[in-house]
Amino acid sequence: MLLHTVNKSPFEKTSLESCLRFAQTDSSILLYEDAVYAALQGTQCESLITQALKTHPIYVLTPDLHARGLNDKPLITGIQAVDYVGFVDLVVAHHAVQAWV
């Protein structure tokens, strides 16, 4: 099983859309750096993420939410927040990492 990592804002790049199009069912997805904006409720990404959550566990890196002043914004239901230790745990739990940049 793969861990897909996305770091680009979904409002500037198509990395997230590409990831979701090619990720196999049950592959995990981690949003970090500017991709954390996709994890927020009320954005134009919400329906895309909600649909993806039906077949993929999706994580967001908490320190990157904090760095962007988004720590008090509600996340889309089903997204799991992880810290750096959680990020490492995800990498260890998967046989490979696919970075979408």
Rank of each mutant, 00 (worst) to 15 (best):
Q80R: 15
N71P: 00
G78K: 12
D89W: 11
V101I: 08
L40G: 05
L40K: 04
T14L: 08
D83K: 12
R68T: 01
S18E: 13
C19E: 00
L30W: 05
S47D: 08
H4P: 00
Y84T: 08
L3M: 06
L16E: 00
V91G: 04
Y32K: 05
E17V: 07
L2Q: 14
P10K: 02
I79R: 06
H94V: 05
V60M: 03
E12W: 07
G86R: 11
V88E: 08
V60K: 03
T62C: 02
N71A: 15
V36R: 02
Y84L: 13
Y59R: 03
Q80L: 15
V92N: 10
L30D: 02
E17N: 07
G86S: 11
Q41G: 03
I79D: 02
G86N: 08
D34K: 04
L3H: 05
P74R: 14
S15H: 09
A23Y: 12
D72Q: 15
Q24R: 14
E33W: 10
V60R: 05
L53E: 04
G69F: 13
L30R: 07
P63Q: 07
S47E: 09
V97W: 07
T77K: 15
F22E: 09
L16Q: 05
T14N: 13
L90R: 07
K54R: 14
K54Q: 14
A93I: 05
H66T: 14
L61T: 03
L48F: 06
Y84P: 00
W100D: 00
G42K: 06
V82I: 15
N71R: 13
L31Y: 06
F87T: 04
A38V: 03
K13S: 09
I79L: 07
V85C: 06
